[in-house]
Structures are given as C-alpha cells and as structure tokens.
Design a protein around this nucleic acid. Structure first.
Length: 415
DNA sequence: TCTGGGGTCCTAGGACCC
DNA sequence: TCTGGGGTCCTAGGACCC
C-alpha cells in the first residue's frame, strides 16, 4: 500500500443545533434540541444527558429538564451546509457530498498548491470556524472508511490523521459500531459472539460472519475490518428512487383517511419527478400500523409514470391490498410512497403522445400523458405563486407529529 | 401517552426464460 | 413420463445511513 493518506472526511458537529446556537448567542453553552414533538437534533450539552434524535420530545425533557426546544431555521441549515462544503471545493473538485453536513474530498495532487493533506484539513477547519462560526471535524486517511472513522473519533471539533503505517493498529482498537454498516442489530449479533472491537471482528472466521450476517454483509465487514476499502470519490451521485412519507399519529385505516394522504404524498413526489423530467416504473406503498409494525406492497408497471393522480391511484390500490391482508389492524400511524426504476423521459414522447398507435402497445399512455401535461400546468403555477396556490386541497396530517416541509427538503437527494 | 423523513443495499422465494 | 443449471426480474421484508 504505497498510497498516501489523501482522503478527507469532513463532518459539521451537531450541525442543526450548532447553527441555532450561532444565530442566537443566548443558546450557546446550553442543552438545546431542534424540533418539538420529536427531537431532530441535539446540542452537545443536550447529548450529555442522553438526548438523541429521533426521540419523542417528552422523553428528551425527562432526560434533561433544562432542555430548550427551538423550532428550527431550516433555510439557514442549507445555507451553512452549502457554504461549508464549498470551502472543501476550494481545495479540490473531487468532493463527494454525503448529506447536508458531511462530505468526502480527495486532495491527491494538490500538495504543491496547498501543502500536505493534514495541513489542508487544518486550514479547512480554521476557515469554517472563522468564516461560518461552526465547528467541523475532519478525518484524513488513505481510504474513505478510515477517513470517516477518523472524523468520528475526532469529534467534537477535532482533526485525526490516520498514518498509513499504523492503520491496522488504529482500526482494530475501535468498537465495531464505528464501522460503516454496523448498526444496533449487527452490533448485538456480534456482541452475542463476544465480538465488540474491530480487531475481534477481523479475527472472526468468515463462516461465522456469513452465518451471522449473510454473505454480503459478512464479506463487506471482514474486508473493512482488514482495511480493504476500494471505494473512491464519486462526485455526482443521483438518487435512484424518490419517496415521501407522513406520520399520521393514530388514524382509522379507512379510505377517508388514506386517500387524501396518499394524494398529498403522490403530489409531492410527482412534482419532484416532473421537475427533472423523470418517471418511475416501480411504485411502493408502505403502511405502518398503530403498533409500529409495517408492511410494504409494490407494483412494477410496464411503463414509467409521474402524474400525480396516476401515482396516487396505484398507491391507493397497494394500500387497499395491504389493509385487506391485515384486517385485524384497525389503525395506521404512517403512510409512505416511493417510486423506483426512474427513467429520464424524452420530452418528445411526453409532449407528442397522441400518435403512432402508442395506445395499443402501452395502454393508458394517452391518458397518462394528458395527466402529465395537466400536472405540468399546476407545477408552473406553483413555481410562480407557491405550492399552496393550487393543488389537491388540504390534507389532514397530524401537525404535531409531522415535520415542516423545509425540513423534508433538506433530506432530499438530488434526482 | 415509543419513534421523522429522505434515501441505499441485501436477502430470499417464486416466476419465467433459455 | 419427469427434470439440470444459469440468469433476470419481481415482490416483501429488513438493516442501515444521514
């Protein structure tokens, strides 16, 4: 392994909460939580009490009676997140953004301009601190996995450089849950076998790992535990599916509840897809019952769709089917729709669908195209006058439990 | 008064094709 | 007169990530 440590992973600390403390100095040094009914983010002061996201607000308050809830300046989060990632971009175009507050960068070949990677990392941290007033932790290593672990170890407000000569020592001393892909379930399975460190995981036979976790996960973890991570920086990641969901509290499992809710979800997804001239063939609906058990039903169509009413109709059928299979469940707590198998639609086909016997080969195409064009008209009005200017009418979402639209948008990946 | 909302990937069984 | 083997697609469920 002659490679040098040129991969950076930069991760803003307690991001939403830190922005709130930046905007309102009276919140600094205090335990705060963004959100209300549910904790969306917690400051380090709040985390010290065990406050985590997602956690019901009442439970957070129980753990930390001093906790201050703030509503959240979601538009500001995008601004600060973008600004921080842009600073990475000043050192290399090879930046892979993972989320609003986190990105990888590969600074190979930039040493003559900016110095060695550790210096670049320090400069980035300093600039983010000075220009934005935020703390960002950075890991520097030869691979993405090690860089990511480095930034986690560096938190809060730190820098960790993993020397290529001592990678295994560094890695094997750490707990397994720091690895990418080890969540609560996997951690417990491993713990059941007495495996709690990455070193112990590395020493575990592949037979046992496969039995425990399946072949893919087993092989992947074994490779990572031995520091074999071949992933490289991908600068333009696009989503392969688009979805929307809404928590409903506890509502009767009847048409009068799920139809308007599904129409609203279909509308949100449809408008996102149409804005990018995308359509999808596979529609998945998810129903979560009051007891939190969830089921999914999906259908793959012969041709892709993106019209709101078509998406809604398919989703309704799927939900009806799921409810019919679970007649004992009288209440639902969440509905979700997701659209996969996305395809870029050629404009021509969408705008001139009325000829050439299309209808014969793709039944419903003509009606679908008419709906698509009607939706595009709605989209256009919304572009000018706002989302609520026109549409399918209000939806009885549980306002206390649902989350602001601005927050949903933060989580959306580029399509 | 147990838990948001956006995603990705893997598994396993069955249908279907050659 | 009874059945191989490989590949692909679809569906449902689940773990994980931020």
């Amino acid at each position: 392994m002659a490679d040098a440590a040129t991969i950076l992973h930069a991760d803003l600390d307690a991001f939403y909460a830190s922005v709130e403390q930046l905007l309102d100095p009276s919140l600094r040094g205090k335990p705060i939580a963004v959100g209300g009914g549910i904790v969306l983010a917690a400051s380090y002061e709040a985390k010290a009490f065990g406050v985590r996201s997602p956690m019901p607000g009442w439970k957070a308050k129980e753990l930390c009676p001093e906790l201050i809830f703030v509503g959240g300046h979601f538009d500001q989060y995008s601004h600060y997140g973008d600004a921080a990632i842009k600073i990475l971009g000043d050192f290399t175009p090879r930046v892979e953004r993972i989320s609003i507050d986190e990105a990888f960068a590969d600074v190979a070949g930039t040493e003559h301009l900016f110095g060695p990677p550790a210096t670049i990392a320090a400069t980035i941290r300093q600039r983010v601190r000075e220009e934005l007033g935020l703390a960002i932790s950075v890991g520097v290593a030869r691979t993405k996995h090690l860089a990511k672990i480095g930034s986690q170890v560096a938190k809060p407000d730190g820098l960790v450089v993993v020397d290529p000569a001592h990678e295994i020592e560094f890695l094997h001393a750490l707990p397994v849950e720091l690895m990418w892909g080890v969540g609560p379930v996997t951690r417990e399975k491993l713990a059941g076998e007495g495996i709690s460190t990455i070193g112990q995981l590395a020493q575990t036979s592949s037979g046992l790992l496969t039995r425990l976790l399946g072949p893919a996960a087993g092989d992947k973890l074994a490779a990572l535990a031995w520091n074999r991570d071949a992933r490289h920086i991908v600068t333009d990641r696009r989503a392969h599916s688009a979805g929307a969901q809404s928590a409903l509290g506890r509502k009767p499992a009847v048409e009068a509840v799920f139809r308007p809710a599904l129409l609203h979800l279909a509308d949100r997804i449809g408008s996102r897809l149409r804005a990018k001239l995308l359509s999808g063939r596979t529609i998945t609906a998810r129903v979560r019952f009051a007891d939190l058990r969830a089921v999914t039903r999906s259908l793959t169509l012969p041709a892709p769709i993106s019209a709101t009413s078509t998406l809604a109709e398919v989703a309704e059928e799927l939900v009806r089917g799921a409810l019919a299979d679970h007649r004992d469940e009288r209440f639902i707590s969440l509905l979700a729709i997701s659209v996969g198998h996305l395809e870029r639609q050629p404009m021509l086909q969408l705008e001139l669908p009325l000829g050439l016997g299309d209808e014969k080969h793709r039944p419903g195409t003509r009606r679908g195209a008419a709906r698509w064009m009607a939706d595009k008209a709605v989209d256009k009005v919304r572009d000018r006058f706002g989302w609520d200017a026109i549409g399918y009418g209000p939806v009885a979402l549980d306002k206390a439990r649902s989350v602001p639209d601005a927050f949903r948008e933060l989580a959306e990946k580029e399509l």
